[in-house]
């Protein structure tokens, strides 16, 4: 209680000025109205609509016949859905850890005042310009046992060499991960690089004067200072992971073995459109929304609530 009243009074303090601010830039605010309306109607309205209809037995066309939590019960009793969640968790954790660490290390390397930095930056960021569909198709070919890496190495003489992650249910997620990392790391690197460039040169000078080793400066000083960049990166990467769909469709379409690389978004699409069962698809997408919120709410709290920064 105490903290909420505190926050309220704090906000009031800043709201004393906004009364004058309201009328300032009035034309810009009017211009923003269509955007705000679209956001409210399309995003918020659409979301509420989806959640509401997830409690109905809508088939091909939406209809309001309530069935309570039936769709959710059915969803959580489906093996395919449970496997999808498992796969996504594994992919998500691995992808988060590796993109952030690799992105940061690359950014640090780029920050050493190297020659041709622009060239390297462009090369590293290029994969991000490709859609997941293209990325997936490219890597499907690279990992193809007949034509890809395995084929090339075997042609060079190592005939026992075997590297075929996509056709083995145990390793298929690593195959997806390779493609995902290739695509996403460059982007994280650029975010991190911007963060590193935002660090005041004086910090470095002070650290050098005190004789602190470079690695220690990075770990103990620079990383804590880059907290906002890290949090933004985490949120962007995490929300990208939850909606993972096109990469899987392009690389494995959920296989091998039918289920080994299923993800929740595929379940949503298949049940909404192929099975003509909107209610079930809506229930699954509501669960996805829930997981996005679980990622977003702590972030919003850290960024906007609690102590002010900046």
């Amino acid at each position: 209680m105490a903290s909420t009243t505190e926050a309220a009074t704090g906000r009031q303090g800043t709201e004393a000025r906004p009364r004058a601010r309201w009328t300032r830039n009035i034309s810009a605010k009017i211009a923003a109205i269509p955007m705000i309306a679209t956001a409210l109607v399309v995003f918020v309205g659409g979301t509420i609509w989806t959640v509401v209809y997830s409690f109905t037995d809508s088939k091909l066309l939406p209809r309001l016949r309530w069935v309570g939590f039936d769709q959710y019960e059915r969803l959580w009793s489906q093996n395919r859905w449970l496997i999808s969640i498992e796969n996504l968790m594994f992919y998500g954790v691995m992808s988060l850890v590796f993109t952030v660490t690799m992105g940061f290390i690359l950014a640090v390397l780029m920050d050493q005042k190297i020659r041709f930095e622009d060239t390297f930056r462009t090369i590293m960021l290029y994969p991000f310009a490709l859609s997941f569909i293209v990325t997936g198709l490219v890597w499907q070919w690279i990992l193809n046992p007949q034509f890809g890496i395995q084929g090339v190495v075997r042609d060079m003489g190592w005939t026992s060499f075997s590297f075929d992650p996509l056709n083995n249910p145990q390793t298929v997620l690593y195959g997806l991960l390779i493609a995902g990392l290739w695509q996403g790391t460059g982007f994280v690197m650029c975010l991190m690089l911007a963060g590193l460039r935002g660090i005041d040169e004086d910090i470095w000078k002070a650290a050098r004067v005190d004789g602190i080793p470079t690695w220690k400066t990075y770990v103990m000083v620079i990383i804590p200072m880059m907290r906002p960049v890290f949090i933004t990166t985490l949120v962007i990467v995490a929300s990208g992971i939850i909606r993972l769909y096109d990469l899987v469709v392009a690389m494995t379409s959920g296989g091998p073995g039918g289920n080994a690389s299923q993800v929740p978004a595929m379940y949503v699409y298949d049940y909404m459109f192929q099975a003509q069962n909107l209610g079930q698809g809506f229930a699954a997408s509501t669960m996805m929304l829930l997981s996005v919120l679980i990622v977003l709410i702590p972030w919003a709290y850290l960024e906007f609530g609690g102590k002010k920064h900046g």
């Binding site: 073995g257 049940y271 192929q274 003509q276």
Partner: peptide, 19 residues
Amino acid sequence: WSPDVQKQAEDLMVEFWKS
């Protein structure tokens, strides 16, 4: 059978045949 039943059966069958 409705597409919904068939899709569920498909999901089950692929799991059964491949595991």
